[in-house]
């Protein structure tokens, strides 16, 4: 009954995030083209995977000639955190039809989760809030696809020799630094980074997976080391 206003409100509340997400999608598009991906594959990845940092990582892995099973396993690990979003949203979607559930799952990325869960918790008793989440999800989706398309177009115009592969590094630094909120997070990042450098020569490009595991173990271990009473 109040679907349309809710849908539009969700989209409107996502617009400020789009200002950051669309350029991010554009950089992804440029990098994908520069890594040798075909236009269809670069845009296809944005449609099929629809996941920011995982797409950047995949482009890097594809450019390095990583075997398919390592590339797929790496994406799985980096996107596993979406299971937590899924668990957190689930109580608010349990009465919806399978079609709605499958739609909302498709747009359940970091930004949409953040916008939607706040709204679910605030407005749940009023009902119909899945329309709000769909509005947020489709707005972000459209911005991501448009950013990707523009990046693919630009990537083909920009000449070689501008060290554009380094944009991956600075983009990831911009994403990494805000996550280093406490000592376990910092130690996890350092341990994973050093493992990845040391493990660079390992076969099947397995270094990234190994490094991620080491980072998780070091993070969990240092939590216990520092949070012990006394």
């Amino acid at each position: 009954m109040q679907r349309k206003p809710l849908f539009l409100q969700g989209a409107r509340d996502t617009l400020p995030i789009l200002i950051g997400v669309a350029p991010f999608g554009m950089i992804y598009g440029v990098l994908a083209v520069k890594a040798g991906l075909a236009v269809a594959a670069a845009q296809g990845m944005s449609v099929i995977l629809f996941a920011g940092s995982a797409q950047f990582m995949l482009v890097q892995l594809l450019g390095a000639g990583t075997p398919w099973f390592v590339a797929v396993a790496s994406t799985f690990i980096i996107n596993l955190r979406h299971a937590l979003y899924s668990a957190s949203v689930a109580p608010h979607t349990q009465r919806l039809s399978p079609l709605w559930k499958s739609l909302l799952a498709y747009v359940l990325v970091d930004e949409v989760y953040a916008v939607a869960i706040t709204n679910f918790e605030r407005s749940a008793p009023r009902g119909g809030q899945h329309w709000y989440m769909l509005g947020s999800g489709l707005a972000l989706w459209a911005g991501w696809q448009a950013g990707t398309a523009l990046g693919i177009f630009l990537g083909a115009q920009i000449p070689e020799g501008l060290s554009l592969d380094f944009t991956l590094v600075v983009t990831f630094i911009a994403l990494l630094v805000p996550t280093l909120k406490d000592r376990p997070m910092l130690l996890a990042a350092l341990a994973a980074g050093m493992t990845a450098v040391a493990a660079n020569g390992l076969p099947y490009k397995i270094g990234l997976l190994l490094a991620t595991l080491v980072g998780i173990v070091v993070g969990l271990w240092s939590e216990r080391a520092w949070q012990k009473p006394g």
């Binding site: 990582m57 690990i77 991956l168 630094i173 994403l175 990494l176 996550t179 980074g193 998780i216």
Partner: peptide, 14 residues
């Protein structure tokens, strides 16, 4: 720990 670990594991080798 997955985001900081993965991001750092891509940044440092690069």
């Amino acid at each position: 720990y997955v985001p900081p670990a993965v991001l750092s594991a891509i940044i440092l080798p690069e």
